[in-house]
Structures are given as structure tokens and as C-alpha cells.
Design a protein around this nucleic acid. Structure first.
Length: 196
DNA sequence: CTTCAGATGCTCT
DNA sequence: GAGCATCTGAAGA
């Protein structure tokens, strides 16, 4: 199976955010593959989006990665303790990215449970199973991603994507989460997800 | 099921 | 110093 190439990311961010649903995220860790199918994304577009860290082409040490070539991983720390994974999109110099908000585990779930809860899968509560990878901080914790991978090229291991393996159902959309500060951008329907 | 408080540290003003 | 693209556990309905 071919790794998704640069051209996949070098497109309109809203298109990429939807096309990513159903694609497969692979994280190689100590010889094991932690694999998940993408079920939820959000688009952030610096040119016109007050919720984007690089709104109005704002360049700071942190946002520098958003100006990197498409297919770069943008990882940042939020609320002092959680990491969020984004995939840089658009043409080089256009700061934009897609946030990975949710996965469905396909392989390595036992290791993910250990990373996230420090215990085996069969000791998780029903609530923990039901909400295993449905949030950006949970995803990064479960596949051991932090800012040390910021700027990683997504065309190479140990972190890359594979195309959809089958049809996706209906794509839902709605407002993004946790950006009430972003004025008019608060209501942009730039969150996309697949129904469970 | 729901709400709520608190954790924790980096980033930019 | 203020705020943040979040999560968890506890407590109540």
C-alpha cells in the first residue's frame, strides 16, 4: 500500500479534511505499528480563519511549522499537558492544516491502552472503551506523539498515512470544538466526521 | 446521562 | 500575566 504523497496534502484544506476521513494513520513505535482509521477532522486556514494559530499569516516560533511544505506534521502542546496532531496542507507558504480529532483503532490497540491508561485493554471500563480515541489529546497519547515530532515529514516513517481501504459512509459536518474565542470563525462548519 | 473544577506549561502580549 | 484547537474524575439527576 502506497504512502499518501505530497500532492494529497497540497490541496484546498477543506477538501483534504474530508478526504482524510477513512484514511489510515500509521505510527511505528519500537518495531510495532500502531494503526488507526481517521474518523474525525477539523480544518484550520491561516489566510482567513481567526481560530488558526497562523491567522493573517502570523509567524511565530510555534507557527513556523504551519508554513512548511504540505505533508508536514504540526504538533503543539495545549492546556499544558496534551498534544494535538495536525497535517499541514495547501501550497507552501499558505499556513493551513487539518487537526486529527478521532481514530478507530485497527492495530496495536493493546499498546495504545498501555500508553493511555497503563493497563491492558480488558481492564478498561466500558466508558473508556467507548471513548478510546475520540479526541485529539487522546489520539496523541495513545500513539505516543509529542512535540519532538513537530516538523516530521509525513511521507516517511515513523509517522505516515495510507489511502482509504474501502468506501466511507456519509460525511457529517458542523462547527469546530473549543474555539469560542474566534469570533465569526467560531461558526464555520469546518469539523468533519464519520458516524460510528 | 449531565455538569463542574482542576490539572499543568507553553506561547505571545 | 492571560489564555489556551483538552481530559479526567467526582458528584448529582
Amino acid at each position: 500500500m502506497e504512502i499518501l504523497g505530497r500532492d494529497f496534502y497540497r490541496r484546498d484544506t477543506l477538501t483534504v479534511a474530508q478526504d482524510l476521513l477513512g484514511c489510515v494513520l500509521v505510527r511505528e513505535l519500537e518495531g510495532e505499528r500502531l494503526v488507526g482509521r481517521i474518523t474525525e477532522t477539523e480544518a484550520y486556514i491561516g489566510r482567513c480563519d481567526k481560530a488558526c494559530h497562523a491567522y493573517g499569516y502570523r509567524r511565530t516560533p510555534r507557527t513556523e511549522t504551519l508554513f512548511a511544505r504540505p505533508g508536514t506534521a504540526y504538533l503543539y502542546l495545549i492546556y499544558g499537558m496534551y498534544t494535538c496532531l495536525n497535517l499541514v496542507t495547501e501550497a507552501p507558504g499558505e499556513p493551513a492544516a487539518v487537526l486529527i480529532r478521532g481514530l478507530e483503532p485497527l492495530a496495536g490497540a493493546e499498546t495504545m491502552a498501555a500508553l493511555r491508561f497503563g493497563c491492558p485493554l480488558d481492564r478498561l471500563t466500558a466508558y473508556q472503551r467507548r471513548n478510546f480515541l475520540n479526541g485529539p489529546g487522546k489520539v496523541c497519547k495513545a500513539i505516543s506523539l509529542d512535540r519532538s515530532m513537530d516538523g516530521h515529514d509525513l511521507l516517511t516513517p515513523p509517522l505516515y498515512l495510507l489511502p482509504r481501504q474501502g468506501p466511507v459512509g456519509e460525511i457529517r459536518h458542523g462547527p469546530r470544538v473549543g474555539i469560542d474565542y474566534a469570533q465569526e470563525a467560531r461558526d464555520f462548519p469546518w469539523r468533519f466526521w464519520l458516524e460510528a
